[in-house]
Nucleic acid binder design. Structure first.
Lengths: 121, 121
DNA sequence: AGTCAACACCTAGATAAACAAAATATATGT
DNA sequence: ACATATATTTTGTTTATCTAGGTGTTGACT
């Protein structure tokens, strides 16, 4: 079992969401940002300054691959495809996320029962 | 309602946990780190390099107050006490946290139904 | 008397995630 | 001609958290 789990881990929420959506098929950047809005019931959106650097980092790590496609005579779009190692990485950050969420939930729902009561108020 | 919620918000997990625990009474730094381990079933711990700066920041913002107490003839400990504004702040980051958790859960549990299927595999 | 572990606090510097705010360019509708 | 939506890029900034050290006290064991 894990010990001394830190808060820094389980922080790659954007990676997690992007990879999760890419499990459903290949999408391009702008499309991903739209899907995130849609899937979250318009609750969250990822600014471009977060989205694209995240995609480049995932690509650098080999978790996703990129392919330029010309749709009709339109400008080219860069479609991203999740690779097997990306699915592995997704599993890791998903379980990290659940782990941290569980731990925080324990703390938030804890009912503190003090041992000795010395009134001073 | 909130719109365009970002990931940067709802990230003050350490603040949230510290304030939550301080709702149960006054504690000192080292004690807080022990309680976090205990309450989380040993799942997480906060390193001192995260804990103390977080406490100082909360204090600077007036969310908590500090008081030195000598327990017996022991070395002094610095007890922290949550202030009303700290409780307000806790409510804010708690609802931010729940908001973000809900939105992520929507995305993670989304079943994508593509409009048009063109087989290419 | 010496040592060691647990207690209790402090801090400088590094890392890295996420963001804001720009810019570029195409396509579409009015 | 102009505005809006689409689509990508990049520079610089912020900030949360961590690493890795440091100081000093207390109490137990040898």
């Amino acid at each position: 079992m894990k010990q001394n789990y830190n808060f820094k881990r389980g922080k790659n929420n954007i990676d997690m969401i992007l990879l999760k959506i890419l499990c459903n098929g290949d999408f391009y950047g702008y499309q991903l940002s739209q899907l995130i809005k849609e899937f979250s019931h318009e609750m969250i959106s990822i600014p471009e300054g977060s989205l694209y650097p995240a995609l480049y980092k995932l690509q650098d790590n080999g978790y996703i691959s990129a392919e330029k496609r010309l749709v009709g005579k339109r400008q080219e779009r860069i479609y991203y495809h999740i690779e097997p190692s990306g699915r592995d990485y997704l599993q890791t950050i998903l379980s990290d996320y659940e782990y941290l969420t569980t731990a925080i939930q324990y703390i938030l729902s804890y009912q503190y029962a003090p041992q000795e009561e010395t009134e001073d108020e």
